[in-house]
Design a binder for these strands. Structure first.
Length: 203
DNA sequence: TTGGCGATGCTG
DNA sequence: AGCATCGCCAAT
């Protein structure tokens, strides 16, 4: 008999660790965006960690209006506007009061969204980049501080059986490098991505 | 293929 | 002033 297996939901407690631990573990998990009339699902293929002591981190200096959600418990979203045009989507991690987050840099979409404003794009590149994935998933600042769980606009699902098999047979491997697009903290090796993934940012 | 640059608005 | 970006265009 055929059985459909649903991925397990990622619980906040699983995210309550330092971001450099969580960031590689999020590779292969699925980000789900629930819209009124459609669901958009994407495999996480590229992440970066931001944490205490990191000069590139928005919470490096002090708590401000913008970064306050970074100090909240794990399992919330941190979304901000960058270069006046794009948004960046982060997952808040670690213990309450300890600012820490993972930037989601690229997704491999399961399918082309119904209203596709980027119809010229290669399916593999529609969500290739932190600004592009927010555009296609309609993630903007009104979602900042939201909890990642079903029933909300966004949630996470753990690695599925198919992905695990690809890891086990080494069809997919994990690569760790320095982060992208920064002027500070450029030597921290806190970027991870899946090998052989056309959606990973080109650099 | 690589590198330079403008768009655009919010933050501290 | 600078920014956790992107797409376009020119030069190689």
């Amino acid at each position: 008999m055929v059985s459909t297996v649903f991925n397990q939901i990622v619980e906040p407690s699983w995210l309550a660790r330092p971001s450099p631990e969580v960031a590689p573990d999020l590779l292969g998990c699925t980000l789900v965006r629930q819209l009124p009339d459609q669901q958009i699902r994407g495999l996480i293929v590229e992440t970066e960690a931001y944490a205490l002591g990191d000069p590139a981190f928005h919470a490096y200096k002090r708590r401000t209006d913008r970064n306050r959600v970074l100090f909240d418990p794990a399992g919330r979203t941190y979304i901000y506007l960058i270069y006046g045009i794009y948004h960046c989507f982060n997952i808040v991690t670690d213990q309450d009061g300890i600012p820490s987050a993972v930037l989601i840099r690229a997704l491999q979409l399961e399918s082309v969204p119904a209203v596709d404003s980027t119809s010229n794009q290669n399916i593999h590149r529609i969500a290739a980049g932190p600004g592009k994935l927010c555009r296609v998933m309609q993630i903007e600042r009104s979602l900042n501080g939201g909890i990642l769980q079903p029933g909300e606009p966004l949630w996470l699902e753990h690695r599925g059986r198919q992905f695990q098999q690809q890891v086990d047979c080494q069809a997919v491997t994990f690569v760790q490098t320095t982060r992208i697009g920064l002027s500070q903290g450029i030597d921290l090796p806190w970027r991870w991505y899946l090998s052989n993934c056309p959606a990973v940012s080109r650099r």
